[in-house]
Design a protein around this nucleic acid. Structure first.
Length: 557
RNA sequence: GACCCCAUCGUCUAGUCAGGUCCAGGACAUCAGGUUUUCAUCCUGAAAACAGGGGUUCGAAUCCCCUUGGGGUCACCA
């Protein structure tokens, strides 16, 4: 039993691809088989090494480990390599030649523009476009002459035009494709690379793939693959197609969504040229040339890096669709796996929280749903919160440290190990993601004079109302804090609670809020005792003093 | 447009294949209370669906047909 995941390395792994990979992996593991990763880089224009590495990293992060495939992080390689389509060109050509010799395929010399024109004409006449087989009518001498002239050409498969193709799909059941719906599709491109259809059929055969599990967008292509298998005398693997994953608005979730969001923003604002980088000189996000070529061609999305810079400059949030986005946003890989598995599959009953082990014990194709599922960010977030809370504090500290090292290294520089551990622990029960503490805790790593006091109702209320008001409380606790013998959570708690009992009718909030504002600038932070303990006595006293002098400043103006 | 696929609370789904135990269960979101030093948590409770119409049957969320709605595919992309 062998399954494979065959992505094209055109960017980061997106959630749809991740789910496909997960199901392929789970199915193989559930049935004691092997899971193969094969990089289908047959599109030279869209593939890149960086993208491949990113893809491998994403998969590894999710804990989806392949038995065979590119060597990476302890996974792969295997006996059936190479696992990059681009390194298997001679293999494809061998089979192309066989088809050519047997008259099951033929060379065609039309250029892309010519074909596009023919398609447009068909569309205008509301006809269904099919390749007209003009090249098939070329006589031998002409073909030879074209070949001698080195004319660019493709190889097309001669699709039978009598028999319908029947395919059994494990999820969708019997699928019949009528012969007139399959024209003589291209199997070898002008650049000498095979198309996906051809590569996949050859590779699946040579790698002994027995079960093909992939996205529903391939359901119809299966007929082409079956035809190719028959022509080549190959086995026919078991097929299972997975329903699509939708955005919350019901549209198909696609890796193009980020590009779409950017194009929309640019159009809405009527931007003629590239905006400047934020907080920098007048340096533009993109060169004028780059900008124009991007806008002029919808089929060429911006590379991730430029896309992210542009999003920053436009101050818009790019939709999270790549595994990488969720990683950076602080979701746990095991939560992603759990949630992804629930999209289009369910173990039945009321079970919905489970780990990879459970998945490989229970996953099967007969519980895969046909209907598409929307990706529900809220539910994912809730799962993430639950998983975070279920961890021991030690685990949480370790995970947070890992995340911080990768995405917020400044915390590691500014906080001692001990401080970081306290910072993590203080945030444990109130964080929904591993990123939350870093985003809300900037004041922990700011120098005292960088604290900016927020101008808001809540701040005003805590500081300036009541009798005595917040400032007065600050002035009163300051000497107590100064004299506190040991600066730690327990002693701070005892001190402040006693203070509240004696001076604020037992209402801790009367002191806690002014203190919180004084040390953070805002009304939100982890529990006040922890916050003060992490900051340390010097910083706390400095900040209180600064807050008090700030009052004098604002009252005199 | 042609061909095909899908259809249970707002969302993910259980139940559908082997019709009765389902005036439909769980989770997320929502709403109302409560706990709390802020935020977030946490606790309790509520509201919320078988798309519509026809059959078949003693009986249908479950089987059949039609309508409606949603989606996919029609590349020298995968």
């Amino acid at each position: 039993m062998r399954t494979r995941f065959a992505p094209s390395p055109s960017g980061h792994l997106h959630v749809g691809g991740a789910r496909t990979a997960l199901f392929c992996w789970a199915y193989a593991k559930a049935h004691g088989g092997s899971f193969i990763l094969r990089i289908e880089d047959t599109d030279q224009k869209r593939s890149s090494d960086t993208a491949t590495r990113a893809l491998l990293d994403d998969l590894a992060w999710l804990g989806i480990r392949w038995d065979e495939g590119p060597a990476h992080d302890g996974c792969g390689p295997g006996e059936h390599g190479p696992y990059f389509a681009s390194q298997r060109l001679d293999l494809y050509h061998r089979y192309i030649d066989i088809l050519l010799e047997q008259g099951k395929a033929y060379r065609a010399f039309e250029g892309p523009e010519q074909l596009e024109a023919a398609r447009a004409a068909a569309r205008a006449q509301k006809r269904v476009y099919r390749y007209d087989r003009a090249a098939l009518k070329l006589d031998r001498a002409t073909i030879q002459r074209y070949l001698d002239e080195d004319r660019p050409h493709v190889v097309r498969f001669k699709a039978p035009d009598e028999q319908p193709v029947n395919v059994h799909d494990e999820v969708y059941g019997e699928v019949t494709v009528r012969p007139e719906e399959i024209d003589d599709f291209v199997i070898l491109k002008g650049d000498g690379y095979p198309t996906y259809h051809f590569a996949v059929v050859v590779d699946d055969e040579l790698m002994g793939v027995t079960h093909v599990i992939r996205g529903q967008e391939h359901l119809y292509n299966t007929a082409k693959h079956v035809l190719l298998q028959d022509a080549l005398g190959f086995r026919r693997p078991v097929y299972a197609h997975l329903s699509l994953i939708f955005n919350p608005d019901g549209s198909k979730m696609s890796k193009r969504d980020k590009d779409k969001a950017l194009r929309n923003a640019v159009r809405e604002r009527g931007l003629e040229r590239s905006p400047a980088m934020p907080h920098s000189s007048n340096e533009a996000v993109m060169s004028e040339e780059h900008w124009r070529s991007w806008l002029s061609n919808k089929d060429h999305p911006l590379e991730l890096e430029s896309a992210e810079r542009l999003a920053l400059a436009l101050d818009i949030d790019l939709p999270e669709i790549d595994v990488k986005d969720f990683r950076r946003a602080g979701y746990l890989p095991e939560v992603m796996v759990n949630y992804l598995a629930l999209l289009g599959w369910s173990p039945g009953g009321d079970i919905e929280k489970f780990d990879q082990q459970f998945l490989i014990e229970h996953f099967d194709l007969d519980r895969v749903l046909k209907s598409p599922a929307r990706f529900d960010r809220d539910k994912l977030l809730a799962f993430n919160l639950d998983a975070l809370q279920a961890m021991s504090t030690e685990q949480f500290i370790a995970r947070l440290r890992q995340h911080g090292e990768r995405y917020h290294p400044e915390y590691g520089r500014e906080l001692s190990d001990e401080q970081f551990a306290m910072f993590a622990a203080a945030n444990h029960q109130r964080s929904k993601t591993l990123d939350d503490p870093f985003r809300s805790g900037r004041f922990f790593i700011m120098s005292d004079d960088q604290i900016v006091y927020e101008q808001s109702k809540a701040v005003h209320k805590a500081l300036e109302t009541g009798e005595p008001n917040g400032y007065a409380h600050l002035e009163a606790v300051m000497p107590l804090l100064k004299e506190l013998s040991e600066w730690m959570v327990e002693t701070l708690e005892r001190l402040l609670k006693r203070y509240a009992d004696e001076r604020a009718d037992g209402k801790l909030a009367k002191v806690a809020q002014p203190l919180r504002i004084a040390v953070t600038g805002t009304t939100v932070s982890p529990a006040i005792f922890e916050t003060l303990a992490i900051l340390g006595r010097d910083a706390v006293l400095n900040r209180i003093e600064r807050c008090l002098s700030n009052r004098k400043l604002s009252s005199s103006t």
